[in-house]
């Protein structure tokens, strides 16, 4: 029962997920000369004009804001690749296409800060929105089906961080409820329940009532 009314099931806010996405590497083309940057997360640079370099997204955005670089569009964000992904997403009902783990956040950050570096920005944007919608619809469908399977586990591959984060509070609670009502303490019929691993979160200890 502990988790059922626990409001802290959803741990990350969207902004925190975005923060984590800023560690992803992107390619920039600097227009200035700068020495090597020695940061905790690694060394980046040295930077020379017109020589592409890999930097974390947060650094790329910081440089972009100062007009020191242009950000190269990641390969998966090109119009062809996105249209292909969208087609494939629509074709396969179960599986999800392989996209970067933080694709929602990266695209959002690039739209916000590097509009000028994206060719066909409106097409790209609407393609990504479509992909996200199709994928989320698939997530809902797969959530609908998991309660038939008499198990407290779902396997969905290739979900992105934001999609997971979006359904985390709901799925967490739902699985706990399924687990609780299906727990063998209430149903003393062992062969009807699949074996499950003990969960630390839902050990409702019941005192034995009448000791005889």
């Amino acid at each position: 029962m502990a988790g059922q009314s626990d409001p802290n099931l959803s741990i990350f806010s969207a902004e925190e997920v975005e923060f984590m996405a800023e560690d992803e590497l992107v390619e920039i083309v600097p227009n200035m000369r700068m020495d090597k940057l020695t940061l905790i997360c690694g060394d980046y640079g040295p930077f020379f004009p017109q020589m592409p370099a890999q930097v974390p997204l947060w650094l790329a955005i910081a440089l972009k804001k100062r007009g020191k670089c242009t950000i190269r569009l990641p390969d998966w964000m090109s119009v062809e690749n996105l249209s292909q992904t969208l087609e494939a997403e629509r074709d396969s009902q179960e599986s999800f296409q392989v996209l970067p783990f933080h694709y929602v956040e990266i695209s959002r950050l690039l739209f916000d800060h590097a509009r000028g570096d994206i060719p066909d920005v409106y097409t790209v944007r609407s393609l990504i929105e479509d992909i996200r919608d199709v994928r989320f619809h698939k997530v809902e469908t797969s959530l609908e089906s998991f309660e038939d399977a008499r198990s407290s586990a779902v396997k969905v591959k290739n979900l992105s961080a934001m999609e997971v984060n979006l359904v985390r509070p709901f799925v967490g609670r739902a699985l706990q409820a399924f687990y609780k009502h299906g727990s063998p303490e209430l149903v003393p019929n062992p062969e009807r329940m699949p074996p499950r691993r003990p969960q630390a979160t839902d050990n409702v200890q019941r005192r034995p009532l009448r000791k005889r």
Binding site: F136, E140, L143, E144, E147, L166, V167, F170, A174, A177, F178, H181, G182, S183, E185, L186, V187, P188, N189, R192
Partner: peptide, 23 residues
Amino acid sequence: RDMGSFLLSAFRNRYQEVLAKAH
């Protein structure tokens, strides 16, 4: 003895409706 499975099936039936509307 049937309470657990009864609650589970009730919750399962109603869960779909909640899921469909929730998001």
